Simulated scan of single mutants.
Amino acid sequence: MERHEFGVAVRQLRESTAPATVGLPVGRRRVQGLRREELGDLAGMSADYVRRLEQGRSHPSAGVVHAIARALRIGRAEYERLCALAGYAAADGQVPNEIGPGALRLLERFTDTPMFVSDAAMNLVAVNSAFLALGHWNLTGNPWEWNIAWRTFCDPFSGFQQSAADATDHEAVLAARLRSALLRYPADASLAALVDEMRSRSGLFDTLWRTPRPVAAYESSAAFLHPDGAAVTLVGSLLTIPGDDLSALMLTAAPRSADAARLAEIVDAAGEPTIIRVGQPGPG
């Protein structure tokens, strides 16, 4: 059954891969996605072997799984799924932090909406200028200053205020996501160090780690205090980008509200929309 499911997954990925995304000419095509011969050439195997894999008549080695994943340029989550279907552990235990085309499209299309993209360890990977325009994210000098969970539990923002109910939901999501990340990436030393440090620094986080709260909602409201003294209340909605194991958080105001008008003023004052790649110790 696993061999059959692996073959089905490879065929679906092959047929959904645009030739241009793997460096092949488009031209006129009678088939959807890549041909078996093209996948074979890219992965260093014969088209017949690709056919036998897709039909469940051959069991791939770990190297073959890696070669197919590399040839199709799939994200971390899809690579892990192929490994699991083939009966192997993923070769790389590090949290991926490369921003993919899907995440970039979100940032490019919602320029007037404060948004950031984070990896599975809750490190910011990229933000748009609308998010930075809120002016609440101050650098502290801590090694994890661009980690959302660290800033929430160990070094809270002075310009970010939530009700008790919203804070409870927000904290539960962060702790649950870090726990899930550590299970998926047990070899990531930086992630393990982050969790250990947070458990020693924050009694609340340590309690949540030992006794997790159920996640009630993947969105919460907060008031952002702008440096000019005015506040704007926004709702953060979490979106997953599974192919790259990334997440995007969009901050929106109630339509036609005073907060919506205030947000528009803040974003307009920020000037030309831009996307900023984020690293440590700050934006790069």
Score class of each variant (00 low, 15 high):
A126C: 09
A121K: 03
S247C: 12
G44Y: 04
A9K: 08
L204G: 02
L72S: 12
E197P: 04
D259L: 07
L208E: 05
I68T: 01
G203Q: 07
S202A: 09
L124M: 15
G135T: 02
Y218E: 13
L42Q: 10
I275E: 06
S158M: 04
L139K: 04
L104P: 08
L263N: 10
E2N: 15
G279Q: 11
E272T: 14
P60A: 09
S163L: 05
C154V: 06
Q280P: 12
H170Y: 15
L139R: 14
D188I: 00
C154Q: 00
S221P: 01
E2P: 03
N97V: 04
R277L: 14
P96L: 03
I99L: 15
E2M: 13
R73A: 11
F6E: 07
T252L: 11
L106S: 06
H226F: 01
Q55V: 04
G75K: 00
G236I: 00
E171W: 03
Y88A: 10
S237L: 08
L34E: 05
V95I: 10
A269R: 14
G141D: 07
R105K: 11
V125N: 07
P281W: 00
R151G: 10
G159T: 01
L106F: 11
A18N: 11
L132I: 02
A120G: 07
T252S: 13
T111P: 01
L134I: 00
L42N: 03
G271V: 01
R35K: 10
A149I: 01
E2D: 14
N138R: 13
R151E: 07
F110N: 15
L249W: 06
R76Q: 12
F205K: 04
A18H: 14
E265T: 12
R277Y: 08
S118F: 05
S163N: 04
T233N: 13
P143M: 08
A264L: 02
P114Q: 03
M115E: 05
H170A: 12
V65D: 09
L249K: 01
L13A: 09
H59W: 10
L72D: 08
H136M: 11
P19M: 04
T17H: 02
Q12R: 12
A91S: 12
G284A: 15
A270Y: 02
T111Y: 00
V125H: 02
M45E: 08
A121D: 06
A71S: 08
V127R: 11
P156N: 06
A260F: 00
A192E: 10
I241S: 07
E197Y: 03
S58E: 11
R52Y: 02
D41Q: 14
P255F: 03
F110S: 14
V235M: 13
M250A: 15
R35H: 01
Y88M: 12
P96I: 03
R179W: 03
L174H: 00
L225P: 05
D245L: 04
H226L: 07
V117C: 10
I266P: 11
S220G: 11
A258Q: 13
G203N: 06
L208T: 01
R213S: 15
D112S: 12
M122C: 14
D245W: 00
T152F: 12
V278G: 13
P212G: 05
A71R: 00
R213E: 10
I275N: 06
A90D: 13
G141F: 01
T111D: 13
L204D: 12
G229C: 07
L34Y: 01
A62D: 06
